[in-house]
């Protein structure tokens, strides 16, 4: 870890301005991932701008949506009564992530910005196109148990590790960001990107932009939501495969459906084909299996993660069954 400057910002404007001037700087909130990355020498910003004093911690609701400040803690959001009542999928996803200690530090914005946990990314002695473009991908042909089966490229097969983001993708949230050129809104599903030929970029955030909040539009999924996370131990492990399932039911008929997966791609993986297929159909094991099958089109595995081709559809069926009350 090399020496760096540390400053605190107290307004969004000040934070953005400081970063713009810093050249090589980074915002720090909970720091649960950034500090690790700095310790391992994966990243070495010259200046850290602490944004914890920014007034972005509240969870507010109006008639059409709930807005969560970027600095709201993962633990606070997961326990928030409004979230539990109206958007239980998000609460479930948050509670399945990391450990209570980490959730007490980690923020919503930080959760979105966390980097992949690919072991080749973390080890500076290993090749990794995400850490060092052009150095190669250690995971292709290496130990890729945790890696992607959708949307991979010949440059990178890493996955985004978040659970929260999978739920927010399914819930069609909107991200509000501010930067030197003003503020803009980004649909959550567009925030993270696929690796393509520039895996060093995880998302579409422009240099100097700061996440201010995330808004979830009103929906009627509260009664039939489920976040399923399959992992190698009962807690404090990243997803092998996870599924966020949200249904709007009229009796046994699916009026609307949202599905997204975690642990399978460089970004939360929305299952649009399955959603379309299920709309208007009966909530039944057969339909769920068909939806799972449709979801697997284009999947590609890399050896150690071959099992995901079988586990992913099983997880989709199980999450839909749980969400619909079938099991």
């Amino acid at each position: 870890m090399i020496n760096f400057q540390y400053v605190r910002a107290s307004t969004v404007k000040e934070a953005i301005g400081t970063l713009a001037k810093a050249g090589d700087g980074q915002f720090i909130a909970g720091g649960t991932n950034l500090v690790d990355l700095m310790k391992r020498g994966v990243t070495a910003p010259q200046k850290l701008i602490d944004i914890n004093n920014l007034p972005l911690k509240d969870v507010k609701s109006d008639k059409t949506s709930i807005t969560i400040g970027a600095l709201a803690l993962n633990s606070d959001v997961s326990e928030n009564e409004l979230i539990i009542k109206q958007q239980p999928l998000l609460s479930m996803a948050l509670k399945s992530g990391a450990s209570p200690q980490l959730r007490n530090m980690a923020t919503v914005g930080g959760n979105m910005m966390q980097r992949t946990r690919c072991p080749y990314f973390y080890d500076t002695a290993m090749p990794c196109n995400k850490r060092k473009p052009g150095s190669g991908c250690g995971a292709i042909g290496g130990y890729n148990r945790m890696h992607a089966i959708f949307g991979t490229s010949n440059q990178c097969i890493a996955v985004h590790p978040s659970d929260m983001c999978v739920a927010l993708t399914a819930l069609e949230a909107t991200v509000t960001v501010s930067g030197p050129k003003g503020s803009r809104k980004i649909p959550f599903g567009d925030f993270h990107k696929l690796p393509g030929q520039n895996p060093e970029k995880d998302n579409i955030l422009q240099k100097g932009e700061l996440i201010e909040s995330v808004s979830i539009p009103e929906n009627d999924f509260a009664k039939n939501s489920y976040y399923l996370k399959l992992r190698d131990r009962a807690s404090y492990a990243f997803a092998l495969v996870s599924v966020a399932a949200a249904l709007s039911l009229d009796g046994q008929t699916i009026k609307a459906c949202r599905l997204a997966m975690g642990g399978v791609a460089h970004k939360p993986w929305r299952l649009s084909e399955a959603e379309k297929f299920l709309a208007g159909k009966k909530a039944s094991a057969e339909n769920f299996e068909q939806a799972a099958k449709l979801s697997m089109a284009g999947a590609k595995s890399f050896g150690y993660n071959d099992f995901k081709l079988k586990m992913a559809p099983a997880a989709i069926v199980e999450a839909l069954s749980k969400a619909s009350g079938l099991s």
Partner: peptide
């Protein structure tokens, strides 16, 4: 200890 999994309380 994140990738080498010793059991946690929940296990």
């Amino acid at each position: 200890l994140a990738d080498y999994h010793v059991p946690v309380h929940a296990d």
